[in-house]
Structures are given as structure tokens and as C-alpha cells.
Design a protein around this nucleic acid. Structure first.
Length: 152
DNA sequence: GCCAACGTTGGC
DNA sequence: GCCAACGTTGGC
């Protein structure tokens, strides 16, 4: 069982949007970064915990948690010429991009802001702090535990 | 909306 | 395969 942090722009797809899906379960697609893709494809497993982080908004923060309910499968959007995630170099025999399904789990009573994360010495090693621009990243069990404590 | 950080593309 | 140009992310 692993822990992850997934980023989304709340204007595009927020924790609430996930909650509103049938079964509170949605497809986490549109990942078009190789480092993030590799985590998704090779390491994210069913049952893993996900911190949902809202980026590019007024108060960047971890908004709540979700759970992986289906491990990696080819992202259908890469084959759809109408999609903004279309990739002409991808084929069904040789898919390039992957997605997972996640289920809404909890909303933090107090979202944990990036500012608060940066101020907490116990969270100084988070990938979020060390590497700004990665949309799928591993989180340690200790970080997960602390994050849940701070959020609730 | 600016811009730093950093990943990707493509000419050579 | 180097590296300059370009595009994107994302905090501020």
C-alpha cells in the first residue's frame, strides 16, 4: 500500500467534482508528463491512498483524500482526435499515456495549504516542496499521517 | 499576468 | 547527442 499526491486545478477538476461522479469515482486522466506517467503506470496500485492537491488557484492546498480503485490502463483520451489530450504518436498497440480510477474518500475540514506545508519542518522533504512541477508524486506514510492530522 | 524552473522538441 | 528555443506548470 502506497501513498501519493495528485495535483489538479480546481477550475478543471476539483475534489468536489470527483465527489459528484457516479459512485464518487472518476478517471484520473490527462497526465502528459513522463515522470508522472511512470509513477502512475508502474507503481500506483489499487487500494493506494491519494492526497488531492489543488494547484494554480487562490490558496494552493491539499483538499482531501481519495483511494485508487483501478490501477493503470491506457488513457483513452490519447486516441481521441477531438480531445485536448490527443497524442498522434500513441497507438492502442503501443499506448503512451496511462490513467487510473480514484474514488473520493474525504474532504479535509481544514485544507492544508502549501504555505503551511512549507512551514512545517516535518514536511520539508515532500516532493511537493522540493520539486514544484510534478503532478503525480509519492508521499511517505509519515507524511500521509501528519497530513491527515493537520487537515482534520 | 509575470516569470522561474524545468521538460520537450528539433536543427545540426 | 548536444543544446538553443520553446512550451508548460504553478506560485506569487
Amino acid at each position: 500500500m502506497n501513498y501519493w499526491l495528485f495535483k489538479s486545478e480546481p477550475d478543471e477538476y476539483s475534489l468536489d467534482d470527483l465527489k459528484g461522479e457516479p459512485g464518487q469515482t472518476g478517471r484520473w486522466d490527462g497526465i502528459r508528463n513522463y515522470q508522472a506517467r511512470n509513477f502512475l503506470r508502474d507503481q500506483v496500485e489499487e487500494g493506494d491512498g491519494v492526497l488531492l492537491y489543488h494547484s494554480a488557484c487562490k490558496v494552493p492546498a491539499v483538499a482531501g483524500t481519495a483511494r485508487v480503485v483501478r490501477s493503470a490502463y491506457p488513457d483513452p483520451a490519447q486516441f481521441d482526435p477531438e480531445s485536448k489530450y490527443y497524442d498522434p504518436k500513441a497507438s492502442s498497440e503501443n499506448p503512451r499515456w496511462f490513467c487510473v480510477d480514484i474514488q473520493w474518500q474525504s474532504e479535509f475540514a481544514r485544507p492544508v495549504s502549501l504555505k503551511a506545508i512549507k512551514q512545517n519542518p516535518e514536511l520539508a522533504e515532500m516532493v511537493l516542496v522540493k520539486q514544484g512541477r510534478l503532478s503525480i508524486q509519492p508521499v511517505t506514510a509519515a507524511e500521509w499521517k501528519l497530513m491527515e492530522k493537520l487537515g482534520n
